Every structure is written in structure tokens, then in C-alpha cells.
Computed example of a mutant assay.
Amino acid sequence: MGVRRHQDYGFFGPDSVTWRVWSYPTSLVLGFLRAVVIEELDPHLVASVDQSGQVKQRPKLRYDRTMQYFATVKFGDAESVLRASDTLMKIHSRAIGLDPVTGGRYDANDPASQLWIHLTAWHSILYTYEVFGPGKLEPEEEARYWEECALAAEFQTIDPADVPRSREGIRAYFAAYRPRLVGSEVAQDMMDFLLDANSIVLPDGVPAPVRILFNAVTRRAIIATMPRWMRKLGATTQSGLTDRIAIATARPFVRLIAASTWLQVWALRLASPRTAPILEPVMRGIPPVRPVVREPEEARAEYGIVDPRTQYQELLAARARLAGPDPYPLHHREALIPFPA
């Protein structure tokens, strides 16, 4: 099978810490699932997920498309990143409604909600890289990682100035956000569903013993990386001994896959076929047509794509004039467009 070359390195490139951390095998399952499990504790987010009904109706498709989006932002060429960001912005424009737990109104494009998802993902990917992979980054490398996290925020409605630039800043953010989190029945149910990784990641046809073993290890390994207070909110408690066994069991498998490009490509194609064309050129070291790293402002001018923050302000103004898009109906089935709602 031929591998399609990207047009350029996008906005990060091979010298970035982002490429090193996000291309490591922990991102594909452990890091991604840790992020989406924790995200469900936000009552606004889980209300949006629950009312759309798409995660439980089509879990494999949603996983595949969400991985595709994440990979595009980090590893795709500049035009692909901007068009993916623009598509997601438009999908999210209809993901609005009422949160029955708090009585508040959720809006998938709200910058505060986007920041919660963004930081949970970037922290989870880094943390699982540390726990199951090579270990902690050097201080200078970690500083670069959070700077690159702020750059990635430009492709959502987030103000990059709101992104912490250090581990201490990330901890302070989560501590400040903690009072907003709720371990509701809906949140706990969704977290439990997402922790059953075999139904989300593994394709049909995988033998039952493999599915059972895969799920037992990944579920416990993900929980082992979660703070105790989050486990309590999510009703996902387990003992410290189980934590240690799960990590010790998962770590050698992750490192085995990391040692082989062939195994990484095989696992990627198996788990997320839509992501493979984006990440495979990076895994195989295939250079793009133009081996340059782009700047967001310059690329937006070239491709004529407005940044998400500006689009969001225009959307809010349109809603104020009662001209905005209608929210999705309950348990809608959206069209099979390339990126996740």
C-alpha cells in the first residue's frame, strides 16, 4: 500500500516535542482513553455527549474520527489542519443545549469547555508517555511541549494566553476547575463505557480471549493513572496493588510496540484506519513535498480560512440576532463528515 506524502510539516514538525510524545504508542489507546474518560466529569461536556447519543451508538467510528482529528492537528500538513479545524468548528456550532445536572447551558465551542478538553488531552498524552513509555521529559523539553500545546490551541476557540506553560500551571488549572466537575450517574455510566476499550478500539472479529485480556489490562492501566479524587467521582476505584500490577503488565507491551515501526503501523491500521494515512508517513520517516514548518497566520492567509476565535464571535453575534444554527435534535445521527462532533 502506497503512503501519501504530506504537503508540508504542518505546524510542529520532526523537531517538535509534540511529534515525539504524540507519535508514541501510548497515545493511541491509553492516553486518548484516559483523556476522554476524565473529560466526562465536566457536566456540560457529558450532557452534550449523552444528548447526541453518538458515542454509544457508534463507538468505533467516533473513536476513529476523533483520533483522525487529533492526528491531523499534530501531524497533518497546514491546509489539512486548518480545514479540519474549520469543519469541527461548524459541527460544534450546533452542539448546544441544556445541562440537566447543573441547569446550565452547554456550548461545544465555548472556549472554557474547549480548554478543558484540550488540556485534559495534552496532559493525558504526556502522562501516559511518562508512565508507560520512556519516562519524563527534560525540563527544557517539557517547557517546549506546553508552548506547543498553546500553539495547538489556536486551532480551537481557545485563547492561547489561557494555556498554562508549565506542569505547575497545569496542576493549578485542574485544581481551579475541580469544583465544576460532577460525578453524576450519567458521567459515571459514560466513564464506565469508555473504559471498556475493546468495544471502542478493537475491530470486529478479534477473538474473545484477546478482547477480554486487552480490556482487563487497559481498563486497569488507565484507572491507575487517574488521581484518587477523580476515581471517586467516577466510581472507578481500585487498589494500589492493582495499580502497580496493571502498569507493570501494560508497560512492556507498549515498549515492545514502540520498538518496531511495523508493529506501530499494524496497530494503528487495526485501531484507527482513518488515522493511518496521516500518521504513517511520520512513522516511516517519509518527508513532505515541502519540508517546512508553517505559521498559522501565514497559512490562514494562503488558504483563506478564518481562525476559530473570530468565527465563534461571529457565531455568538448571529445567535444574538436569532440567526444562528439550530441545535442538534436529541440523539441525532450526523452525516459521516470527516471529523468528530
Rank of each mutant, 00 (worst) to 15 (best):
V131E: 11
P134W: 14
K136Q: 13
E138H: 13
P139G: 10
E141H: 15
E142N: 01
A143H: 10
R144P: 04
Y145S: 11
Y145G: 12
Y145P: 09
W146I: 05
W146G: 00
E147N: 14
C149N: 02
A150T: 00
L151K: 09
L151I: 12
A152Y: 00
A153G: 04
E154V: 00
F155I: 05
Q156T: 12
Q156R: 06
T157M: 06
T157Q: 12
I158V: 10
D159S: 10
A161S: 04
A161C: 01
P164R: 01
P164A: 02
R165G: 04
R165H: 10
R167K: 13
R167F: 11
G169T: 04
G169N: 07
G169E: 03
I170R: 05
A172D: 14
F174K: 12
F174R: 08
F174L: 13
Y177D: 02
Y177S: 14
R178G: 01
P179E: 02
R180C: 08
R180M: 13
R180I: 02
L181P: 12
G183Q: 05
S184D: 12
E185M: 05
E185Q: 14
A187K: 10
A187D: 14
D189T: 09
D192Y: 14
F193Y: 15
F193E: 12
L194N: 11
D196K: 15
D196Y: 08
N198P: 00
I200M: 08
I200W: 08
I200A: 02
V201S: 05
L202T: 11
L202A: 09
P203C: 10
D204V: 14
D204C: 11
G205K: 05
V206T: 15
P207K: 05
A208G: 00
A208K: 09
V210T: 13
I212C: 08
L213S: 09
F214N: 15
F214M: 15
N215M: 01
A216V: 06
A216K: 08
A216Q: 04
V217E: 03
T218S: 04
T218P: 10
R219W: 06
R219T: 00
R219H: 13
A224S: 06
A224Q: 02
A224F: 09
T225D: 07
T225E: 07
M226D: 04
M226K: 05
R231Y: 01
R231F: 05
A235C: 13
T236I: 08
T236W: 01
T236R: 08
Q238W: 00
Q238P: 11
Q238H: 07
Q238L: 07
S239E: 04
G240D: 10
L241C: 01
T242G: 00
T242I: 12
D243C: 06
R244L: 01
I245H: 10
I245D: 03
